[in-house]
Design a protein around this nucleic acid. Structure first.
Lengths: 251, 251
DNA sequence: CGAGTATTTGACGAAGCTCAATACCTGTGG
DNA sequence: CCACAGGTATTGAGCTTCGTCAAATACTCG
């Protein structure tokens, strides 16, 4: 089981891709964690309509953010992985307008909002980093909308795989061109807004063209360039490439 | 022409819906504005790929955030109105992964990033309010994705109208159940990810059922309840209803 | 009035949905 | 070791929503 010390590691790794993170800042993050918890598969870790007093940092496992429509159709708007602060926004924005469910058993760190408020009062640079991480989430949603609106099924799937590959790589969860993706085709269809039948056909399309291999929950990217091409993928939105130190942005 | 003093009014009004905004905070915002500028119709005020050194506050007019796909299809991911800080995220996240264009002549306030950094260093409560406004934008994108993925054409249109009505009302730009919406059906089709032909049919559907009236660029909502029903609209995502004062969230 | 743009209509085609059936896979108990 | 159960993946066939192409009508402004 993860200790609180090791808990913030995946998040720290992600934030370091944005800017330097001092020892002290990392300790401040650790100090903000109040406890570690396990979530069962298919259990909601955050529920629509609630106004939690803490935010949830995903330490291990996969989670999905979703809304349910009147007809009972479930639309997934993001897949979350280790290091994602899945409902950091609940700190300021309440109540939750969507739920987050565990796609696999998950370990989470509980971070009380009071601690986050304290960070905004005392650590502006760290605050900017956390803010940035919510902005990247926003960018992911924006891209998701573009994909849903203007890409065909197989392109959307390709886009999702490109995104997940890069994000998993960021936190060290890839193995060469392979990674675990514990999504059934039914779940996948809820990401892509396709029927399960069509989702299956779209998966086969990419397989037949030998762009990806997908066995069990193991995905291997056979031809990254072609995948990027199909998806019209541009990774810009996943990065927060500006350094955030006070001096240089004041320049 | 707007003066800098009056410039932050629509933004201040919006932020006040989230939490109290002190006189001093309002002055700090004013002080962060370096200049006021006019943008012509169809001119981009922010361009994909660039890394601006300032953010853009929309003072008057309508703007749209969009991406262009390989086939030249343009997908609009948000419509912006007075008081929206259209690219506040460019402060931390660069370069821009999308452009923002003026749907009408627009007045904008230019806010250098250095000023924003200074706010994060000295005004934590105001920082949280600004952060929240980017979170609401993120929520809008999330809803847009849900709508694109799981609603039919006429439902999507209904959803867009519900959203715009409430947002315009927030900043005092509605007149009873009417408001100006300077969107051609072509633009509208780029919001909804429909063809212009189908967009037209979908508009007619809502008109024929006497749910809305749409003459010129004047929209009148005839039957709000039915519109909400069609759209499956839930306004939660537009609000940031938690008070943000340090003391109470530390309680 | 006339040019240009925006809206509307019709006819046909394509992407993706639904219903329904079949195959596969993995774990469980006999 | 086999048989079965329950979930997951795959396939086929007909249908719907929405797209494309093309043309006609209206509106707006000089």
């Amino acid at each position: 089981m993860a200790s609180i010390q090791s808990a913030v590691q995946p998040l720290a790794a992600k934030l370091r891709q944005f800017d330097a993170l001092s020892q002290e800042e990392e300790q401040v993050l650790e100090a903000a964690v109040s406890s570690i918890r396990e979530i069962d598969v298919n259990q909601d870790m955050v529920v629509e309509g609630e106004s939690p007093e803490h935010s949830t940092l995903l330490l291990g496992g996969f989670a999905a953010r979703y809304n349910v429509t009147a007809e009972g159709r479930r639309q997934i708007t993001a897949v979350h992985i280790s290091g994602d602060f899945v409902d950091l926004h609940s700190f300021l924005m309440r109540p939750m307008d969507h739920s987050i469910t565990a796609l696999t058993p998950c370990q989470i760190a509980v971070v009380p909002h009071s601690g986050l408020t304290r960070i905004t009062e005392t650590h502006p640079h760290l605050t900017r980093l956390l803010w940035l991480s919510t902005l990247v989430d926003g960018g992911i949603h924006r891209k998701w909308a573009v994909a849903l609106g203007s890409l065909q099924g197989h392109q959307q799937l390709a886009h999702l795989l490109c995104e997940l590959y890069l994000r998993l790589k960021q936190v060290g969860l890839t193995d060469g061109w392979s990674f675990q993706l514990p999504l059934t085709q039914t779940l996948l269809s809820e990401c892509l807004a396709l029927s399960t039948v069509h989702t299956n056909r779209v998966v086969q399309m990419l397989r037949k063209d030998d762009v990806i291999r997908w066995e069990r929950d193991q995905i291997t990217i056979v031809d990254w360039d072609r995948l990027v091409d199909i998806a019209e993928f541009d990774p810009t939105y996943l990065r927060g490439p500006k350094l955030l130190t006070a001096d240089q942005s004041a320049a």
